[in-house]
Simulated assay, not measured.
Amino acid sequence: MLMNKFQTGTEPDLVLFFDCPEDEMVKRLLSRNQGRVDDNIETIKKRLKVFESLNLPVVEYYSSRGKAHKINATGTEDEIFEAVRKLFSSLRL
Rank of each mutant, 00 (worst) to 15 (best):
V15M: 07
L56S: 13
T8G: 00
K86R: 12
I44L: 12
R65W: 02
N40R: 13
Y62G: 01
D23M: 09
S63H: 00
E24Q: 14
D19T: 02
N40Y: 11
L14C: 03
E24N: 07
T74I: 01
D19W: 01
N40F: 11
L29M: 15
T43L: 07
G75E: 01
E22A: 11
R92V: 13
T74A: 01
I41N: 08
N33Y: 11
P57G: 05
T43Q: 12
L16F: 08
V50Q: 13
R47S: 14
C20Q: 08
M25Q: 14
R65N: 06
V59I: 09
K27T: 07
V50L: 14
K67M: 09
T76R: 12
G66P: 04
Y62A: 02
Y61C: 02
G9W: 03
S89E: 15
I71K: 06
E11I: 02
L48E: 07
E79W: 10
E77Y: 11
L91N: 06
V50N: 12
R36W: 11
D19L: 06
I41L: 09
T43H: 13
L54P: 02
R28K: 13
I41A: 10
R65C: 04
P57W: 02
F88M: 14
L48Q: 09
H69E: 06
L14P: 00
R28P: 00
L2P: 00
R32C: 02
S53D: 13
L93F: 11
N4P: 06
S64C: 07
F18H: 04
Q7E: 15
M25L: 15
I44P: 00
V58L: 11
L2I: 05
L93D: 08
E11Q: 07
D13W: 06
E79T: 01
N4L: 05
L56G: 08
E77H: 12
D39R: 13
L16G: 00
E77V: 14
R47L: 14
L54E: 14
E79Y: 08
R65P: 01
Y62C: 02
I41Y: 03
D23W: 06
P57V: 04
D38Q: 09
V58Q: 04
L16Q: 01
V58Y: 04
N72S: 01
T74K: 03
D23H: 10
G35V: 12
L91K: 09
L93P: 05
K49F: 14
D78R: 15
N33D: 13
D39P: 04
G9T: 06
S64V: 04
K5W: 06
M1C: 04
C20R: 09
S90V: 13
F81I: 11
S31G: 10
F6L: 08
